[in-house]
Design a protein around this nucleic acid. Structure first.
Lengths: 326, 326
DNA sequence: GTTAATATGTCAAACGTTTAACATAATAAT
DNA sequence: ATTATTATGTTAAACGTTTGACATATTAAC
């Protein structure tokens, strides 16, 4: 098929070993030879066959990325930033959208192993996948418990939950509801709820907790939100993600509720996207860039030394962003 | 390292060849042996080494996806759907965000070749990358001219441009501006502008064309939009993407302009995201699912037969969605 | 002019799988 | 009982690269 190492050797008038030495930079080499070989590689547009290299035990420079879906702005941004940062380090990214599908996630895990990726960053939301425990690859998790010994990077959700709820209270909210996902006790995301509950308790307020299953379509969710808003007496909502907050605002407007006078809304995530296109939203900003840096930093550590000791949980602090919805 | 074919053979009490026969399903095999081998593979959690397989000339089942960035909802959705559809066909997706960076796109092209992907779907926006012409891989392009012989899948942008502009006119717009990207004459996207121009000409109206370079941040773009809206006499804007339309709406609200009474706005794309979270926006719906099906269908054709004759351009028709902004 | 250091070459094994060629069993068909 | 068919095994080469062992040539150092 393509150009191979021996073609380069022939063209440069050297041995195959010498070409390999140039590529892998070992042994004695004169500058003249190095230049000659590089020139030949350029002229032939030679690319070493990754397959053959990694058969030899070389790294594939591939990283698997397992997220629910990049069509969600939060994960889209996270994936884009991770991809970009990895690229700068010479890694390529295999994208795995688990789509809240346990089977798919499992299949992907197998595939990534078969493709001998150097490591995995996983942030999907399907629970109980024991395979994570024994893939035998460096894995770092985002915002979710996977298995013993796999470090988790997340925002300080408890603090974030408190922060948002406290803000609603400060602004006069007394009937403060929380709209969140399904109960996932093992994952840090759930701590947003705990933060909310702790603040309500301190102020002796009655919690109003609404769970929305992740498989709900936005339309279905919006419909249910509308019902809740029209039926229940609520003056404030803490949504554990920005998109839900946007639905709440849309439905509140449909119902003629003044924001923030009649209904205060605070979201969670603070993606660049939402900040750019919904600047009015009050939200809790997750430190996206720090996530990316830390995830990759930890992963690189594990790749370079599988036995390195890492913490179980890294919690990055969040920041409240005051918009006009609270 | 891991479990290999010979381990499976030993465990199942058969020869390596037999295991290979089971995996690749050729030659004579008894059901008993097949079961025995499968059982051994399961028990050992065996995954054939993809590297070794593709060294043998087997397909890698890898597809490269080159898009500007998945942090943009349009490309995020497109990427997610393509990934999902490819997964069902047994392919894995290597994600390449070109980030409007020509060098990165070039590097990625090389990497994809080195990784022996079976094919590429490219929808980035950097022009003049001659390498596309001679990667020697099946490539299908989305919405952009890459090189001679590479089919383009796009929406019927000319029709879309006409549709949106005509709608604005019908609703009473007489000072109709267009907000679009930088002039890229070779790409189909530019035809949205041409559609706009043709309608204005028919109605003897003066075109008002504003170009925004793709490297502009949303903030910068928003600032400029605000200036334009406050200075110029405009009663309607056709934005060639939804996100720009959202910026226009936000800035118009800041300026106290009533929508649609004082300013009508129509976007372009109609992603599920925008439909879910900005349902009020009038827009031109691109047939996302048809894009995905066609892109993959064409790519598969090229993969299975490199010489297959394909059209240069596939234009899918768009649909106007009436919201409350026009 | 000897010695050491540097530079390149030859050769072959290895990575894990596929597959062709050939051999031999086991089973079924006549 | 002979023959054909089906099932499995043995062996070895191949994919493209890396790397160690060893040999030899060139250059530099004293």
């Amino acid at each position: 098929m393509g150009i191979k190492l021996t073609d380069v050797a022939k063209k440069a008038g050297v041995s195959a070993t010498t070409v390999s030495r140039v590529i892998n930079n070992y042994g004695y080499l004169s500058q003249k030879t190095i230049d000659k070989v590089h020139k030949a590689m350029e002229e032939l547009n030679y690319q070493p066959n990754s397959m053959a290299r990694s058969l030899q035990g070389k790294n594939t420079q591939l990283i698997g990325l397992i997220f629910p879906t990049v069509s969600h702005p939060f994960f889209g941004e996270l994936a884009a930033k991770i991809e970009s940062s990895l690229f700068e380090k010479g890694y390529k990214t295999i994208l795995c959208d688990s789509a809240n599908n346990k089977e798919k996630e499992r299949d992907y895990l197998k595939m990534l192993a078969a493709n001998k990726v150097d490591g995995i960053i996983a942030g999907a939301h399907n629970l109980d996948i024991p395979e994570y425990g024994n893939v035998g690859l460096p894995i770092i998790s985002f915002d979710r418990y996977l298995a013993e010994g796999i470090p988790i990077v997340s925002s300080d959700s408890y603090q974030g939950g408190r922060l948002a709820t406290e803000q609603l209270y400060q602004r006069g909210g007394r009937k403060i509801a929380i709209f969140t996902g399904t109960n996932e006790s093992a994952s840090p995301t759930n701590r947003r709820l705990n933060g909310y509950l702790s603040v309500l308790k301190e102020h002796h307020l009655e919690p109003m907790v609404y769970h929305f299953p992740p498989e709900y379509s936005p339309f279905l969710k919006a419909t249910e939100i509308r019902q809740i808003l029209s039926k229940e007496e609520i003056d404030s909502v803490f949504c554990t993600d920005d998109l839900t907050a946007i639905l709440v605002i849309n439905k509140a407007q449909e119902l003629g509720l003044e924001i923030p006078e009649q209904l205060k809304v605070i979201g969670y995530d603070g993606t660049e996207f939402v900040q750019n296109y919904f600047p009015q939203l009050s939200t809790v900003l997750q430190p996206m860039d720090q996530f990316v840096d830390l995830l990759i930093d930890l992963l690189m550590k594990r790749i370079n030394n599988a036995e390195v000791e890492l913490d179980n949980l890294y919690q990055l602090s969040v920041k409240f962003i005051q918009g006009q919805t609270s």
